[in-house]
Simulated scan of single mutants.
Amino acid sequence: MKNITIRQLKTFESVARNLSFSRAAEDLHLTQPAVSMQIKQVEDLAGVALFSHAGKRIALTDAGKLMLRHSMTILADLKAAEQSFATLKKGTSPRLRVGLITSGSYMFPHLISAFMHQATGLDLDLNVRRRDQLITLLRSDEIDLAIMVHAPDDPAIVCEPFAPNPFVLVSSPSHPLASERDIPLSRIADECLIVRENGTDTRSAVNEAFRNPSSAPRFMEIGCAEAIKHSVMADIGISFLPAQTIQSEVRAGLLKVLDVQGFPVRRHWCLVHRADRHLPPGALDFREFLLAEGKDRLAHFTGIDNVHTGMTHQHEKYAAPETLTLPTPVATTASLEVALRTRSLLRKHGLPDERDVEGHDHGRGDSGDDDQFPARRKPAHH
């Protein structure tokens, strides 16, 4: 196939992707006969049929699938070369194009900043969007990498998990469920669950966790994580949120993690990119950074699995009143921002600042055993 042209490759790729001659003609601004003629030329060069026909419907043969894989790689390499030469001509720095789901905006900017400080001559393009919007940007080649929880079920997309991301149910401290232990999931069906909008990773996790209609609560949709937190604080309902996003509020006593059977729901942060194109050098370096250091750095910045839950189990029928323990903040920019936000929330709700709380163990930091999320068991009848 040494005589095949780039135009023929592009035509074949469009027909194979759309499984339609007419839609490929629209994409390429060609007539349908012109598309059909080029496909015949490609098949003549290959010496095998690339499409099977059943009435008006077409499908890729095994040879066609092989041809598509190689075509996408060739076209992706050509586009990468074009971008590299454009950068060289302009004298500009190479760019790292990353997409991030909104719930990741609490901690991932710190990881990205850590990487950028050790990378040289690299500019950053960061898009913070909903999951469905990031997938669109990835498929249209507007970003190189995306960080999310639920990757699409698509063989053209590569998904690499690199760090845990558990989800929990939270309420206000005054909610009736806040003081209960080992709560059956069926009890949540009586509650109003405040959730993110469709298209977000958090909503996908909610839908999966409550896919059984008998245990599904009534949903109230709010398209902002901060608004959801304040609605829960105001006792409008409970919510299902990533554990990494609620630490400051839990430590301040403004939110309570509920002790529900089957929770936390274990999920992972995933690095997502296209299988049909090579990652640019900057994106490749960032991928290796996250796979090698992402888990440990998230633990450092967010204290994963070390948020105080107040779920110390008692053998007595009635538990003794809880004492709020606030871990010593880590001296980082992230913890300073958390401390400032926490103090603001404390003052707003008329609660004492952490400096006024007695019995604070300043030696434990974020590593005390009492601060761990329990991995709740599922009841025997499940």
Score class of each variant (00 low, 15 high):
residue 317 K to H: 05
residue 265 V to K: 10
residue 308 H to C: 04
residue 294 G to I: 04
residue 235 D to I: 00
residue 279 L to I: 05
residue 277 R to H: 14
residue 250 V to W: 05
residue 225 A to K: 05
residue 296 D to K: 10
residue 284 L to F: 13
residue 287 R to F: 12
residue 269 W to F: 14
residue 246 I to S: 01
residue 207 N to I: 06
residue 253 G to V: 08
residue 297 R to L: 15
residue 256 K to C: 11
residue 249 E to N: 09
residue 207 N to P: 01
residue 273 H to T: 05
residue 308 H to A: 05
residue 241 L to N: 01
residue 249 E to M: 12
residue 221 E to N: 11
residue 294 G to L: 06
residue 297 R to D: 06
residue 287 R to N: 05
residue 315 H to P: 00
residue 300 H to A: 09
residue 267 R to N: 01
residue 266 R to Y: 07
residue 279 L to S: 11
residue 225 A to T: 11
residue 257 V to E: 01
residue 229 K to C: 11
residue 238 I to G: 02
residue 241 L to P: 00
residue 231 S to V: 00
residue 210 F to W: 08
residue 240 F to L: 02
residue 274 R to A: 15
residue 220 M to V: 09
residue 244 Q to T: 14
residue 251 R to E: 08
residue 280 P to M: 10
residue 316 E to A: 08
residue 262 G to A: 00
residue 302 T to H: 06
residue 315 H to E: 02
residue 282 G to K: 10
residue 215 S to F: 12
residue 308 H to F: 07
residue 300 H to K: 06
residue 284 L to V: 00
residue 243 A to Y: 02
residue 239 S to N: 03
residue 306 N to D: 02
residue 210 F to E: 05
residue 266 R to W: 06
residue 265 V to D: 03
residue 283 A to Q: 12
residue 257 V to F: 03
residue 210 F to D: 06
residue 298 L to N: 05
residue 265 V to W: 09
